[in-house]
């Protein structure tokens, strides 16, 4: 990083200082203060109340359900994301671009619409739902429905992180591996995985953050039964509407903690990649 010899736009100290100042003030107001508020409100009645709120029976159940949903969703989307990224970055075939656009759909579709899509198909009146109903299988308004919409909402993240990286890395190393007689699995484990592990880690963490935090889609298919189908974000809503703001922020503080871990992992991954 040599210092630029030529003057560039915005180099004068006045412009520089005022732009940095403006950026810092806005970021503090828009992002840091809300983050601080979550913890301030959660702890506003002291540690004992905070711990009590977290250890509340329904909150614990919501935490358990949320982790369970993430535990099913994240590995599924990780496997899908890796296969899809491998497919679209290592092979040319007709429809490749369409496929890349298709996986962006969950980003573009409103979460409420996402929930509705599943409710229409698998709910009591839906085609699949009616058929499953004959065998007394109910997917909507119970945990399988929550898992299904969470898979929908979070399926692009791993692929989105991997595709640009794998495209940029190219396939020379893997082709060399094939020539040397490596099997598919060896190729992946010895060459591809080490190359993509940081991006994969961030993709997984991001998938997890969204899986844990999904609200709109889950709230359509959950039925909000306290102690049964209430995930942590839904529990936050319930507490907030019960005028238990401190409890709502205590539950929120856990989700904010996961968000902070996500940001930290991203910063580490970017730092790692910039050193390569």
């Amino acid at each position: 990083m040599a210092t630029p010899r030529h003057r560039r736009v915005g180099d004068s100290p006045l412009v520089r200082r005022s732009l940095i100042g403006l950026a810092v003030v806005f970021t503090v107001l828009l992002l840091f203060m809300p983050l601080a508020l979550i913890f301030v409100e959660a702890l506003s009645e002291g540690w004992a109340v905070y711990v009590g709120n977290i250890l509340d029976e329904y909150t614990l159940h919501a935490i358990g359900l949320t982790l369970f949903v993430a535990l099913l969703t994240v590995p599924l989307n990780m496997v899908f994301g890796v296969f899809l990224a491998w497919l679209v970055t290592r092979f040319r075939f007709p429809g490749r671009k369409v496929l890349i656009t298709l996986i962006d759909i969950p980003f573009a579709v409103s979460p409420v619409v996402a929930g509705l899509l599943y409710l229409l198909l698998y709910g009591g009146n839906g085609w699949v739902g009616q058929w499953l109903g004959q065998y007394d299988i109910q997917l909507m308004f119970s945990w399988p429905g929550i898992v299904m919409v969470t898979v929908f909402v979070t399926c692009p993240f791993v692929a989105r992180e991997l595709i640009p990286l794998m495209q940029q890395q190219g396939s020379e190393e893997e082709e060399a591996g094939v020539v040397l007689g490596a099997s598919g699995w060896q190729l992946f484990r010895r060459i591809t995985l080490p190359n993509i592990r940081w991006a994969l880690l961030y993709g997984v963490i991001l998938t997890n953050a969204r899986a844990v935090g999904e609200f709109g889609a889950v709230s359509v298919v959950s039925g909000n039964i306290r102690g049964e189908t209430n995930t942590l974000p839904l529990h936050v809503e319930l507490l907030y509407q019960d005028y238990n703001a401190v409890g709502a922020f205590a539950a929120s503080s856990l989700l904010a903690g996961i968000a902070l871990i996500t940001l930290a992992v991203k910063a580490i991954v970017e730092w790692r990649q910039s050193r390569l």
């Binding site: 508020l37 979550i38 936050v236 809503e237 922020f249 929120s252 968000a259 991203k266 910063a267």
Partner: peptide, 18 residues
């Protein structure tokens, strides 16, 4: 730079009540 991504990482319901 890191905090810029907070809105993607923070669940929307939490953002809402905050």
């Amino acid at each position: 730079d890191a905090i810029m991504d907070l809105p993607f990482a923070l669940p929307t319901a939490v953002a809402g009540i905050t």
